[in-house]
Design a protein around this nucleic acid. Structure first.
Lengths: 229, 229
DNA sequence: CCCGAGAATTAGCCATGCCTAAACCTTAAC
DNA sequence: GTTAAGGTTTAGGCATGGCTAATTCTCGGG
């Protein structure tokens, strides 16, 4: 168990429920997210319900109680602060921070949390652009829209990548596509076709699903030239 | 379980066996060190023996095999590097690093270890003056002798405090007695009497047992004036 | 040499979380 | 409205690591 009186496993369940949505989280999606059998999830949901961390009606899905949400957000804050610290202070590449943070998040003290937040100047976002839950439980607004929803030719700044898979992040890194980059959507083929994005003098065609996990903020509202509209 | 294929519990047992001595470590001392019942220790010793991490004859005490020692040293290296990092990079006070390191040591990757070692310039000693096991398995020579064995009046530099108790470290810190300080033993009363040490313009009388856990290195071999010999 | 004290081990049990297999709901299609 | 499929829960186990109580061993003193 961790510093806060619940086990690391429980923290992982609450975190997973949190980012699977506001309510009606299904057993099977949790099982998938946690790489665990549905039966195990059922057992744990019973337990979390007894602990008043989730509300749960059998066969009906689950959602966090305020107490459960609080723990989920604290854990997420740990995770994202650690990711940021690993990148900023220890020079970790972007795509390597997740796994390390996944283990560290459960064992650091509040003191540790405070100290790295101080060193980092109380950041709002982690290296993937994900918002870091604040001490008061609020979430900074991440802003931006998925590349799939950006008008063609619109110049925008890449803000966030929500895909968590290491290989995907590694690929984007290799292609030089990371938060902060200025991008422009050149084309978006219909029927699930690829999204082509221009940035830093090159173009890249992305699967639509992947493009949907990249969020960019419109900067100057300047449209541009070339093979856009 | 940790990065290295054994559980955090096993790492703790091996670490405890390691610093309880070269051989013939007794069940009860392990139980005391780990705050666990002697029965639990017996069970675990059986298991560690099956894993070839210790050699163990029932009722005869135990000692580490090379494989066990390797894991103990790796864990200790983690622990002491983390302690050093917490103090140097995050401004932890001396007496707070132990508990935090105790949890972190089991979950950091080799990558993390390498990065903090780099940042710290591959130190030989942690904030308590304990030697940090090196990558090749060697231990830097800590040097120094216990204050109880220093000739009266001998000027020496405080190198190491082996007592692990937080309250004790806090006390020494409050008294300004920390590694690096120049000290001189003023008196040592017989029959377990206190050891009085002079440093930084003040004097302090320490219990003999405590004085025995403070190690100092003779610097200039100058004896001095005043109420010495 | 024997005996008792104290240390160590075994026996039997508990909690946590995981698993597979079997039973059970819910729902959508007919 | 019935039914079959699929998702969910229950039943029954396993591994880890802890506990207490009972047993067994070792060793020093007589």
């Amino acid at each position: 168990m961790t510093v806060r009186g619940v086990s690391a496993t429980i923290e992982d369940y609450l975190k997973a429920i949190y980012d699977l949505g506001e309510s009606g989280v299904k057993t099977q999606s949790l099982a998938d997210a946690l790489s665990v059998s549905a039966a195990s999830v059922s057992g744990m949901l019973k337990k979390l319900s007894d602990l008043n961390l989730i509300s749960y009606e059998k066969y009906r899905g689950t959602s966090l109680t305020p107490a459960g949400r609080r723990i989920a957000l604290e854990t997420l804050r740990h995770h994202r602060l650690i990711e940021t610290y690993l990148a900023e202070a220890l020079g970790y590449p972007w795509h390597d921070v997740h796994d390390e943070a996944e283990r560290l998040e459960h064992v650091i003290s509040e003191d540790f949390e405070r100290r790295i937040a101080d060193v980092l100047g109380h950041p709002d976002f982690d290296p993937h652009g994900d918002p870091i839950p604040q001490l008061d439980g609020s979430l900074p607004n991440p802003g931006g829209r998925p590349l799939t929803e950006l008008p063609l030719g619109q110049v925008a700044q890449l803000r966030r990548i929500t895909d968590q898979r290491r290989e995907v992040l590694l690929y984007l890194e290799e292609q030089g596509l990371r938060p902060g980059e200025t991008v422009r959507v050149v084309s978006h083929e219909p029927f699930g076709g690829p999204v082509t994005v221009a940035y830093g003098g090159k173009q890249l065609a992305l699967a639509e699903a992947l493009a949907g996990s990249l969020y960019a903020e419109v900067t100057g509202s300047l449209d541009t030239t070339s093979e856009s509209a």
